[in-house]
Design a binder for these strands. Structure first.
Length: 595
RNA sequence: GGUUCCGUAGCUCAACUGGAUAGAGCAACUGCCUUCUAAGCAGUAGGUUCGGGGUUCGAGUCCCUGCGGAAUCACCA
């Protein structure tokens, strides 16, 4: 039983015996005591004051007395207004630490038979990844790790947007300006190579529009009639008609992009259990249209287009199928939802997709519900905010994006500069040093993008590089490296990683707060999982690192005369390192042994 | 215009889902390396939580309203 649970039970019993108030121990408000007061757990007595017919402060006093007498955990208490601050016996914390040390899977919930499918990344194949994609990936993979830690079986899936007008634009531009160049020839990463033609397309398009406008047409007309756009639209038709040369070019260019993506994915540690291609799935969902019509959920207009009326649900009418029988985005998404369920029989299906599609997913989920899909209740749109620049939104077409490969490279280089400045590369060979820079650079970037509440937009200023101090990935990594040094020393001194809890009478406050946080770990994972929020873990591990550093500054380990205490502090350090490492793993971040 | 989300220190973010005197980091200033890694620790300064009402023992958090920002409302994806 957890400490919290035991305390709640005792409080519940106390309320019953003192005031004859029956309460469910789950419902009692027990919160962490603020740092400026003594104690670890605080019970707020205001809510029971009315029932007890006494003022909150009196209740706190009486309940405090009751607990010190009757509850085996409570050592002492302090009352501030209606707040009852409880201090537990230090021995309890010492035993807790020993428990944690003896529990190799601390934080991990045993598999609970639930299956979660998470859709991550979903790139377009006409341009390289940018910072926004990185947020998507980091968030998505972290959520997978967190769900796994919370007991889910997790399947990571990716749907590659490999067909459509966007890739046709790159293809047309390549035909026109490519001169038979290849990524190999130009020594350019494949995804960048193809992306360059997407940019070229838009330049040419703009040029043509200008010319048409100059010859007297209005802007809208010109944009519609630009020859290069017509070419792209024709190419899409050719593609849909399975025109062999078009398919060949399409495959060639997509492959270049995949080769490029693979390099980036490898660096950031992305991997998938299943990859869906839109070219395979874009026709799905048409059978669902018929099903909807039969069930009377959808209806047909005179021009044969199919619609759903969601005005009852507070939305509007929404097109499901065009009059000419071709699908729209949502048709396909209905189909892939069914396909996913066929493939995995998931309990939860999480879409990691930006908040610009909030409305779309709202519609999708409501339709599936109307169609009577039982799995619809388990669907969740993990909607995250955009990564914006000081100048506003990133736009691929206009080249105002922060490129993923470039920012990663910059972060790694910054890590190298910092490390060299601090003179911390002694004893590392070239390869180890390089690996360290990568660990630190990526750690800084991943932490930067996962520590913020997913819903909020992130402002990224390229002028100021991501920091390595304070609330950052490297700070936490540094704490781990520091502890590693202590553990190395403990090993050379042949200190046993074990201690006698009963022989220690009092804890230093910093020791107590570190153990308190170690004990909190499973709790935080549960919260992070239920909210699909890696930021919960990021905050936790920062807090843990911060508290440990406080302990490190205040308390000496190897100057301690009492060897049992020395051993206790080594164990405390070892467990902290372990939980830091594991928390960071949940965020997808590696931690070094030295830095 | 309708809908949804957001607005907290100069900047970037927290606040355990309604609890105490709203906390961290960056930037600024002051201390601390002959000691286990100073990418650290301690301290100073910094706030009308966008404005105005309401709900209650208690509101940054819930409700209403105004202001500001973002997204979306396509036979686009």
């Amino acid at each position: 039983m957890t400490i919290d649970k035991q305390l709640r039970d005792s409080i519940s019993l106390g309320l019953s015996e003192l005031y004859d108030i029956q309460s469910n121990s789950e419902d009692l408000t027990l919160q962490p005591t603020r740092k400026e007061f003594q104690g670890t757990h605080t019970f707020v007595t205001f809510p029971v004051a009315k029932k007890a017919g006494k003022n909150p402060q009196v209740i706190a006093e009486e309940l405090g007395n009751y607990l010190t007498k009757n509850d085996p955990l409570t050592a002492s208490f302090q009352v501030v207004k209606g707040f009852l601050n409880l201090s537990l016996h230090d021995n309890l914390w010492l035993e807790k630490l020993a428990d944690i040390a003896g529990e190799p899977d601390w934080g991990q919930t045993p598999a609970n038979q639930s299956m979660a499918v998470v859709e991550i990344s979903s790139p377009n194949t006409n341009k390289p990844l940018h910072l926004g994609h990185l947020r998507n990936n980091f968030l998505g993979f972290s959520v997978c790790n967190i769900l796994e830690a919370a007991g889910y079986t997790v399947k990571k899936v990716c749907i590659v947007n490999d067909r459509g007008i966007h890739i046709c634009k790159s293809m047309v531009a390549y035909e026109k300006f490519g001169n038979g160049d290849t990524p190999e020839k130009l020594k350019v990463k494949g995804d960048h190579f193809v992306g360059d033609y997407y940019v070229k397309f838009n330049q040419e398009f703009k040029q043509q529009v200008r010319e048409i406008v100059a010859s007297g047409a209005d802007q809208k007309e010109a944009e519609k009639n630009a020859p290069i756009l017509k070419d792209a639209q024709q190419m899409l038709k050719n593609w849909e008609a399975h025109d062999p040369p078009t398919l060949e070019l399409w495959q060639l260019m997509n492959q270049w992009v995949y080769d490029g993506f693979e390099i980036t994915y490898k660096i950031i540690g992305a991997n998938f259990d299943q990859i869906y291609y839109e070219s395979d799935t874009y026709l799905l969902g048409k059978d669902i249209v018929n099903e909807g019509l039969e069930k009377g959920v959808f209806y047909k207009k005179e021009d044969q287009s199919v619609w759903v009326d969601l005005s009852q649900e507070g939305l509007d009418e929404k097109l499901i199928l065009r009059g000419d029988g071709t699908s729209v985005y949502i048709t396909q998404d209905l189909g892939t939802a069914d396909l996913r369920y066929q493939d995995f029989q998931f309990d939860r299906l999480v879409y990691v997709v930006g908040n610009e599609q909030d409305y779309h997913f709202n519609v999708l989920f409501k339709i599936l519900k109307k169609l009577g899909r039982a799995y619809a209740d388990g669907m969740y749109h993990l909607s995250y905010g955009m990564v914006d620049l000081p100048s506003g939104k990133m736009k691929s077409r206009e080249g105002t994006v922060v490129d993923a490969d470039q920012i990663i490279e910059e972060m790694v280089r910054t890590a190298e500069v910092h490390t060299r400045e601090l003179g911390k590369i002694e004893g590392l060979d070239q390869e180890e040093a390089q690996k360290l820079y990568q660990t630190l650079g990526l750690g800084a970037l991943k932490y930067f993008l996962t520590k913020v509440d997913p819903r909020k937009r992130i402002l990224f200023n390229p002028e100021e590089s991501i920091s390595f101090q304070g609330d950052t990935g490297p700070f936490i990594q540094y704490t781990h490296a520091r502890i590693s040094a202590i553990l190395r020393k403990a090993r050379t001194l042949a200190l046993p990683f074990d201690f006698d809890a009963a022989a220690i009478s009092e804890l230093h406050p910093t020791e107590r707060s570190v153990i308190y946080l170690l004990n909190e770990y499973p709790n935080r994972i549960a919260i992070a999982a239920s909210e699909f929020a890696p930021s919960v873990i990021a905050q936790y591990v920062y807090e843990l690192a911060k508290d440990y550093n406080r302990f490190y500054a205040d308390v000496s380990i190897f100057n301690e005369q009492d060897t049992n205490k020395q051993q206790f502090r080594v164990v405390l350090s070892a467990q902290t390192a372990r939980i830091i490492k594991d928390s960071m793993r949940l965020l997808g971040i590696d931690v070094p042994e030295r830095m």
